[in-house]
Simulated assay, not measured.
Amino acid sequence: MTKTVYATLHDREWLHLEEPMELPANARVRITIESGAEPDAAPPRSFLDVVQGLELDGPSDLSTRFHDHLYGNGDTGR
């Protein structure tokens, strides 16, 4: 039987299969390791790339007056 199954290596010691295998207990198997993501998977994006893509709208001075806007202290210019 030949089957391709994706797995994640944890703590450099054990593999966690993404789907169950129909094998008897203590079955001996041969494993071929191919490192990397699935060929069709999109490359990972950084958090900043994701946030920039959201096109959020907010006050122009949010970075300098964050606490004022968050807690409503003082004049927020609105």
Rank of each mutant, 00 (worst) to 15 (best):
S60A: 10
P43A: 04
F66Y: 12
R28W: 05
D40E: 10
T32I: 10
A41C: 06
L54T: 04
Y71S: 08
I31Y: 01
L56D: 01
A37T: 14
M21E: 08
R45W: 04
I31R: 01
G36W: 06
E38C: 05
P20V: 09
D68N: 12
D57S: 06
G36N: 07
S46Y: 14
D57A: 05
F47C: 11
H67T: 07
A27L: 05
E34A: 09
E34H: 14
I33C: 08
D40C: 04
H67S: 11
A42F: 07
D49A: 01
P24W: 12
P24R: 15
P59A: 00
L62R: 12
A37N: 09
E34D: 14
L70F: 13
R28A: 04
E19K: 12
R30M: 03
E19D: 15
I33K: 09
V50Y: 15
P59V: 00
E18W: 09
H69S: 02
E34C: 07
H69Q: 08
A25C: 11
L17V: 12
Q52T: 14
D57G: 03
A27M: 07
N73G: 04
A41D: 08
V29R: 07
R65A: 06
P44A: 02
R65V: 01
T32F: 02
H69A: 04
G53V: 08
E55C: 07
S35G: 03
I33M: 11
V29Y: 01
E18T: 13
L23T: 13
E55I: 07
P59S: 00
T32M: 05
L48V: 08
P39V: 00
V51K: 03
L23A: 13
P24C: 03
G72H: 02
E38T: 09
S60V: 14
E18G: 14
D68R: 13
S60P: 14
R30S: 01
T64V: 08
V51M: 07
E18M: 08
P24L: 13
H67P: 11
R28F: 03
E34W: 04
P20G: 03
L56C: 04
D49Q: 12
E22V: 15
D57K: 15
V51N: 01
P20A: 07
E18C: 11
M21H: 13
T64N: 06
P24H: 10
V50F: 10
V51F: 08
R30V: 02
N26W: 12
R28S: 07
D40V: 06
P43G: 02
P44Y: 01
H67R: 13
T64I: 11
P59Y: 00
A25M: 11
L23Y: 14
E18V: 10
V29S: 04
E55S: 10
L48P: 09
P44G: 03
A37Q: 15
D57W: 06
V29N: 05
E19I: 03
D49G: 04
P44W: 00
P59E: 01
Y71T: 10
Y71Q: 09
L62A: 10
P24A: 12
Q52M: 15
H69L: 09
N26Q: 14
S60L: 09
R30Q: 05
E19F: 06
I33F: 15
N26Y: 14
P39I: 00
S35C: 05
E38H: 15
M21P: 10
E19M: 09
